[in-house]
Nucleic acid binder design. Sequence first.
DNA 1: GTGAAAGCGCTAACAG
DNA 2: CTGTTAGCGCTTTCAC
Lengths: 363, 363
Amino acid sequence: MAGRVTLHDVARRANCSVATVSRVLNNTGPASAETRARVERAVAELGFRFNEIGRSLQSKRSRTLGIMVPTLSNPVFAAIIEGIQAAARLSGYQILLACAYYDPEEESRAIDTLLAKQVDGLLLTLTNADKSKEIALLHQADLPFVLIFNQPEEALPAVTVDNSTAARDVAKALLDAGHRKVAYVAGRFRSSDRSERRYQGFTQAFAEAGAPPPVLVEVDYDRVDHRAVLTGLFARQPDTTALFCSNDMLALAVMADLRRMGMSLPEDISIVGFDGIAVSTLITPSLATVVTPCHAMGRRAASGLIDAIENRRQPPAGTLLLPYQFRPGESLMARPGRNRPTRSAPTRAKASPLSVSRKETER
Amino acid sequence: MAGRVTLHDVARRANCSVATVSRVLNNTGPASAETRARVERAVAELGFRFNEIGRSLQSKRSRTLGIMVPTLSNPVFAAIIEGIQAAARLSGYQILLACAYYDPEEESRAIDTLLAKQVDGLLLTLTNADKSKEIALLHQADLPFVLIFNQPEEALPAVTVDNSTAARDVAKALLDAGHRKVAYVAGRFRSSDRSERRYQGFTQAFAEAGAPPPVLVEVDYDRVDHRAVLTGLFARQPDTTALFCSNDMLALAVMADLRRMGMSLPEDISIVGFDGIAVSTLITPSLATVVTPCHAMGRRAASGLIDAIENRRQPPAGTLLLPYQFRPGESLMARPGRNRPTRSAPTRAKASPLSVSRKETER
DNA sequence: GTGAAAGCGCTAACAG
DNA sequence: CTGTTAGCGCTTTCAC
């Protein structure tokens, strides 16, 4: 730890007490013009900088937010964090970052460390919010927190999109394009609350349309090559015409796998993703996907958290659903014999029932 | 700040002094078996957790590393951070994160905040390390730091790849494939030390081959659409057959732009990137690029920094060059009339002169 | 308008 | 083996 010049040094140099220096620097009490000037000069000459550790110890506030996400490899979380940063910076908060790699034990450890570091609040994406015992810990410690992406059953502070209706929209787009034999491809975190919701919404929509139930395909998220699993799928359902992948990164990986298996995209098979990461629009074929307002989610979650912190209360226990948007793309192709266009005008951003109407200034 | 139970509470409950509790919990002195047991029980019953702020204040060490990168939008930095995390976790360090968005003023502000937070060391990617006055500040504060990606002129602790020879390799691959009219496309951070080096190596190799000098094209990094600039390039050099983009993300954006301009890739124009981000292998055409060991760079930089911190000294002032690898890809196509194959076997990882020989366990 | 002093949670002498 | 005490850098009464 550097910056060895302390309030004390400044005080001595300015010929006054530390209390005075503190008052001047914080504008928290009276001080004569002369004293003020002397202090300012001493500060400049000494290159004084507050030691925030000392301040935190005494104020019992660290002005630091803890973030815990599964990984940084998925750009979705990078975007979330940038959103959080934007809000944090506005209010003068710093960010302490931890990744848990979809491992509940790591999650536990990370949260523990964050607590020990005395963060003022926590922004989390848990593997499964409903099964997490960390939530109880946080409540008990009375530490404000907001979940991001998670869509828990219980009433917990969370910011996400309605995964169920979003998946229904995907189902609808697929059905409209003439796809009936499809599969839902999910990472090993299918045990995740949000993936579960997507799967349910997806299958329900198919059921309501009288279409055969989508096949569930689980892939190991660590693995880079999913060809074996995909081969298994085609053995089980040879006439599969479309895949709904639980996130864009997975969709990209699957597309690469399919091509290595000799398929042409989207002619041989259609793909839909989820998240709307930046690259999904740059590639060919462009990826049809559900665009989530990642940056805004991070920003909203953080500003809500900060608000709670500053007012010494918990963020409202309830899920804030932000508007998402299904974005058609070249990766989703209409099946022959169908005349409904697949790539019609983009569907408008649809606000789900629970979502607020406040305007979002997306980045 | 939560976790209101302190050492004092534990002491009272265990019927001993805070000193004893501290000794027991830190294994830093003698204690009878009974006392030990009483303390352990009290800790468990009270749910005690150290307040790291208090510890830091007294120990003058925060066990926290400050990270400052330009942005999280480029997966390269996300990978770097994951590498840092890996090393940090091993040694029990936490990460305080700041993004500066290629803005020197932001860089300054961020470093200042990180210093105030009493980080034990800093991991930085600066816009331009040679022109940064923050370096002086860090030296003056005697705060250990390591640059990542930057390749400064001065002898500063840094971990990167040899941008110059890497760019020469790209030039060589391009020339071998029959390209002579090319351009170097750089983000607005062409003022960055590393981009400068790449440009130099690239142009030198062309000069040595007696080929016309590559055109320099600068694009605004904020902008998503670079078609105007590209149109300008083609006006200036109509027979341009290949573009070397200063990073993969930019390459992807440029590829999308070219396609929107009606070009086919790689038939009409070849593209080479720099970084080797994960998606570059998933897309079609796959991206020819210089694969940098991002994860290892973060890991090495962090472990070097931690080593310096724990031994109360500065990291060795010198650039550690890690091996990179030019990876051919479908985006780089041989020009007609050339018989040398473009997509031969991958070139082996080439260790540059200054690089160490220690084995890297890439992730 | 200014200073002395207590104390935030913890560790580290120093006594006993 | 255990307790007392003095800070770490800062803010904040409470006097003067």
